[in-house]
Structures are given as C-alpha cells and as structure tokens.
Simulated scan of single mutants.
Amino acid sequence: MSENTYTPPKVWSWDKENGGEWASLNRPDSGSRFEQSLPVGEHPFQLYSLATPNGVKATVMFEELLAAGVAGAEYDAHLIKIQDADQFSSGFVDINPNSKIPALVDKSGTNNVNVFESGAILLHLAEKFGRFIPSSPNDKAACLSWLFWQVGSGPYLGGGFGHFYAYAPEKFEYPIDRFTMETKRQLDVLDKHLANNDYMAGKEYTIADIAIWPWYGALVLGELYDAAEFLDVESYTHLVAWAEKIAQRPAVKRGKIVNKTWGDESQQVHERHSKTDFDNIKF
C-alpha cells in the first residue's frame, strides 16, 4: 500500500468538502435548501433544465416532436443554473425530490404531472404522442433495452470517467484507468451494434438514439471532457458515423443549445419559449 492509501472509518461522516469543481454543491442529504418558486410559461410543458447531456435529451426530444408536426409539444425551457444550486430550491424539489436536471411539468391534461429523470421524460413524451418509439413489440423491446442501457451505463461515463479524468481535484491512475476501461468497453458495445444497425433500435430513429447521443455521440465528436484523443474515439468508426449523422438533424442542432450558458455565445439559447428564439442562431 502507498502512503496515500485511505482507510475508511467504521462509520463515515461528512465534515468537509471533498474538493473538485462541484464540491460546494455536494452534501449527503436531500431536500430543499431555500424557498423559491419556479417560473411558469404559457405552454403545455414546462421544462427546468441545463444543457448538460441529460438536459439535452429532453430539449432534443421536444424539438424533434415539434419538427414532426406535433403542435401539442410546445414547451417552455427554463434555465436551472446548477452551479448556483438552483436545483435545491423548494419549487424545483417539489418537482424532483432528487434535485437533478431535467425536471418536467406536463400541464397538458386535467391535472399537472411531474416527471423527473431524463429517461422517464423521454418515455413519457414518446408514449404520450406516439412518436420516436416503435409500435411493434420486438422493436419496442429493443428501443427500451437501449434506452435503459444508457440510463444504467451513463453514470460510469459521467460520474466515473468524467469526474476522475476532468473534474477531480487530483488525478489518480487507478480510478482513471478503471473508468477509462469501462468507457471504452461501452464505446465498443455501441460500435459493434451500429456496425449492423442504422440506429440503436434498428432502422428507426427513436428515443434510444435521443438518450445515447448527448453522452456518447458528444464524446466521440470531441465535445465532452476534452477526451476524444485520450479515448482514441476515431477507432470506433461506426459509432462516429452514427454520431455525425444525428448531429446533422435540425432538431438536434436546436435542442443541444437550449439552456446552454457556456462556449460560443452565438450558439446559446439560455431559455426557450418560442421557435423564434432560434431566429438569430446560425446553424
């Protein structure tokens, strides 16, 4: 064992921040930290989010629905600044007790419906409008399998690889190697599957693609963690081709910049309340 080896106590207790970019937000308890109501727009769907990969899933889905002619999918996308702890307001916690973006209020029916977790939002909207989810049982099973694959696999990429490679206060070989190995295994899973399939569920573009692309598509396109070279993403040729194909969809181009507050200012739409919010954006 090295001199830096950590011996866990019999009972863990939280007595200090653990360092890193997000340390000031991390606590071992849940619930609201301050009283503040959320803004409410005029559309049937109220989305509270930020353009992280999980947030992009929801905004891409809404933009795809609207592009498909589903007028009932009009939405307001309100900005939640997670670095400012907006997700711990009483209003946000009332929608999502887990205090993670995105969170959605569906006001289209008799009673408001709160939906949280990005995968649940995709499935809720797909089933509500009968879009981007296959109708045949076999194809639907494939779609849902890949949707939940992303839900289960994503934390190894984000909270595992992304944290230790990009955000941890110090870099250590063991966790970086551990999560790099798993991330590359996942990339290989996707690459081999896409060698024989146009999209994740076969020939049809579905919520499985919408869920996977903001994480793994962004990663192989060099837009996540500045890790494309490190992971040798060019070797996953089928995955890269799929990612590039989806990146060219107009709805994806719009959805990925909603609630975005970093990078090129000309590619940011802090809040989305109308299709005219994209009028000054050059795609």
Rank of each mutant, 00 (worst) to 15 (best):
I212F: 09
D188C: 04
V220Y: 10
S153E: 11
R178I: 07
F148C: 00
T180G: 05
L224M: 12
G202N: 13
L157C: 08
I207F: 10
E229I: 08
E182P: 01
A228Q: 09
A201Y: 13
G160I: 03
I212H: 10
E170T: 15
T206Q: 05
M200L: 15
G158F: 08
Y225G: 06
K203E: 13
E229P: 04
Y225Q: 04
I176D: 06
Y156V: 09
D226H: 14
D209S: 09
A211P: 01
G222V: 07
F148P: 00
Y165K: 09
D209M: 03
Y225R: 08
W215P: 04
D191V: 04
A168V: 13
H163V: 14
D188Q: 14
T183G: 04
Y199F: 15
Q150W: 03
F179S: 02
F230R: 08
H193K: 07
F172A: 14
G158K: 07
F161A: 05
Y205F: 14
F148T: 12
Y156W: 11
M200Y: 09
P169M: 01
V151T: 10
G154A: 15
P175I: 06
G217M: 04
A166N: 15
Y156P: 00
G159K: 02
M200I: 12
I207R: 00
L221V: 01
E229Q: 14
E173Y: 08
G154I: 08
V151F: 12
L157S: 03
P155Y: 03
H163R: 07
Y205D: 10
D191P: 02
D232L: 05
E229W: 01
T180A: 05
K203I: 11
